[in-house]
Computed example of a mutant assay.
Amino acid sequence: MRNPSSVKREFLRKWIKGLGKCRLLKNNMSFLERKKAIKLSADLAMASTRSGAARWSRALIAEASSPDDDGYNKILTEHIFGSPENQRPKGKVQSTTSSSSLCRSRGILKRSRLVRKVVKKKKKKKIGSPKVMANWIAKRLVKKRTKMLKSLLPGGESMDDDVVLIEETLDYVQYLRAQVEVMRCLATASELTRNS
């Protein structure tokens, strides 16, 4: 990840730009419209800060670009990203990890598959053994949590590779943390100005 302070600065700049456009598009917003505008502009600013290089950022951009009732989302997306052809990065997206660590991870996955085959053979012989039951429970738990993780990550449902899913999730969490810290600083600053 880039330097966290530069990420925060860029996110704040793009978020304020998006919020300004929201205010220009709709003067008299209801509470729910304001909430939607803040969330949409924050998501787009975060995806824009990541430059569409991660799957989660492309999923956020695609979700925001989807047609809505009044074309508001599309206008805001184009304002933050520029023209529609600038919304998606050109060329191949670079992975956040080196190829050696990816090969290592795939090797671990292959070994675990071999272990599973051996366990299945043994399982036929010892169905009720505690070790086999523990493995079965652990696999179900991992599958359930992976499914939950895919539902939380934007674009996660389409990810089949668990290694990529974890990399994308870590990247998304880092950018979410930067977003939260910026929002917290703004909230603190607004409280200080209101009290003085």
Rank of each mutant, 00 (worst) to 15 (best):
Pro4Ile: 07
Ser5Ile: 15
Ser5Cys: 08
Val7Lys: 01
Glu10Cys: 02
Phe11Gln: 00
Trp15Met: 05
Lys17Thr: 07
Leu19Arg: 12
Leu19Gln: 06
Gly20Arg: 07
Cys22Gly: 01
Cys22Ser: 15
Arg23Tyr: 08
Arg23Val: 03
Arg23Ala: 11
Leu24Glu: 13
Leu24Ile: 04
Leu24Val: 12
Asn27His: 13
Leu32Glu: 12
Glu33Lys: 06
Ile38Thr: 13
Ile38Asp: 09
Leu40Ala: 06
Ala42Cys: 08
Arg50Gln: 11
Arg50Asp: 06
Ser51Ala: 10
Ser51Pro: 01
Arg55Ala: 06
Arg55Ile: 11
Arg55Trp: 00
Ser57Leu: 08
Leu60Pro: 05
Ala62Cys: 07
Pro67Trp: 00
Pro67Leu: 10
Asn73Val: 04
Asn73Gly: 04
Leu76Trp: 05
Glu78Ala: 12
His79Asp: 06
His79Cys: 00
His79Lys: 10
Ile80Gly: 04
Phe81Thr: 03
Glu85Pro: 03
Pro89Phe: 03
Gly91Arg: 03
Ser95Ala: 12
Thr97Ala: 11
Ser100Thr: 12
Leu102Glu: 08
Arg104Lys: 12
Arg106Glu: 12
Gly107Val: 02
Leu109Cys: 09
Lys110His: 10
Arg113Met: 14
Leu114Tyr: 09
Leu114Phe: 06
Val119Tyr: 04
Lys122Gln: 10
Lys123Ala: 05
Lys123Phe: 04
Lys124Thr: 07
Pro130Arg: 00
Ala134Ile: 00
Ala134Ser: 14
Asn135Trp: 15
Asn135Lys: 08
Trp136Tyr: 11
Ile137Glu: 14
Ala138Thr: 07
Ala138Gly: 03
Val142Ile: 15
Lys143Glu: 09
Lys147Thr: 14
Lys147Glu: 15
Met148Lys: 14
Leu149Arg: 05
Leu149Lys: 02
Lys150Asp: 02
Ser151His: 02
Gly155Arg: 06
Gly156Ser: 03
Met159Ala: 05
Asp161Phe: 04
Asp161Asn: 13
Asp162Pro: 02
Asp162Tyr: 01
Val163Asn: 01
Val163Ala: 03
Val164Gly: 05
Ile166Asp: 04
Glu167Ile: 02
Glu167Arg: 00
Leu170Met: 13
Leu170Gln: 02
Asp171Trp: 04
Asp171Asn: 10
Asp171Tyr: 00
Val173His: 11
Arg177Ser: 09
Val180Asn: 05
Met183Pro: 02
Cys185Met: 13
Ala187Tyr: 09
Ala187Lys: 15
Thr188Asp: 11
Glu191Val: 11
Leu192Ser: 15
Arg194Thr: 13
Ser196His: 15
Ser196Cys: 12
